[in-house]
Amino acid sequence: MSPETCAVCGGTVPFDSTVHLLVHTHDEAGALDYYVCESCYDEDLAPLVA
């Protein structure tokens, strides 16, 4: 599989080391669809949804 770019740090990581982040907004933006590396998810995003 091809590598993905982390939406938080900008690093390039293997696909199997990413977390798929899908955010549904309440405005015209609709759904935001990103991949983030596991370390950015653990450090920055996981605490928001814990």
Rank of each mutant, 00 (worst) to 15 (best):
Y41W: 14
V19D: 02
D16I: 00
A29G: 04
S39L: 13
V19Y: 01
D16H: 12
S2D: 11
V19R: 10
E4R: 15
C37Q: 06
Y41R: 05
T18R: 01
Y35L: 02
H26G: 14
L45A: 04
A31H: 07
H20W: 14
G10S: 09
P3H: 14
V23D: 04
P3A: 14
A31Y: 03
V49A: 10
V13L: 06
Y35M: 05
P47S: 04
L22T: 15
T25R: 02
A31S: 13
L32H: 05
S17H: 13
V36D: 07
P47A: 12
E28A: 11
V23E: 07
C6R: 03
L22S: 11
P47L: 13
Y34L: 09
Y41L: 09
Y35R: 05
V13M: 05
E4N: 14
A46Q: 15
D42P: 06
V49K: 09
L21Q: 06
P14A: 09
V19G: 06
Y41A: 03
E4L: 13
E43Y: 11
V13Y: 00
L22P: 08
Y35N: 02
V19A: 04
L45D: 00
T25Y: 01
V13P: 05
A46P: 04
V13G: 08
M1H: 02
E28M: 09
D44M: 15
S2W: 07
T12G: 02
D44L: 12
P3F: 12
T12P: 07
P14W: 01
C9T: 01
C9Y: 04
E43K: 15
D33Q: 05
A46G: 11
T18V: 10
C40E: 07
M1S: 03
E38F: 02
C40V: 01
H24C: 12
S2G: 14
H20N: 14
F15I: 00
G30R: 00
C6F: 02
A50I: 08
V8S: 06
E28D: 15
E38K: 15
V13N: 09
V49C: 08
E38N: 15
G11N: 11
E4M: 15
G30D: 00
P47E: 10
L45E: 10
D44I: 08
T18C: 09
L48E: 14
A29L: 00
G10V: 01
A7V: 00
E43G: 02
H24V: 15
A29T: 09
T12I: 10
V49P: 06
L32Q: 08
H26F: 14
C37K: 09
H20K: 14
H26D: 13
H24S: 13
G30H: 07
Y34T: 01
L45C: 05
L22Q: 12
T5I: 15
T12M: 11
S2A: 15
D27I: 04
V8W: 02
D16Q: 10
D16F: 07
E4I: 13
H26Q: 14
A50L: 11
A46F: 06
D27R: 05
D44H: 15
A29E: 00
L21S: 03
E38M: 12
P3R: 13
A29Y: 01
V49Y: 08
V36A: 08
S17D: 12
H24T: 10
A7N: 08
F15T: 03
A7E: 04
E43F: 11
E38H: 10
L45H: 02
L48Q: 11
Y35G: 01
G11F: 07
S17F: 00
L32T: 01
T18D: 01
T25C: 03
L22H: 08
D44T: 10
T12V: 15
P14D: 02
C37F: 02
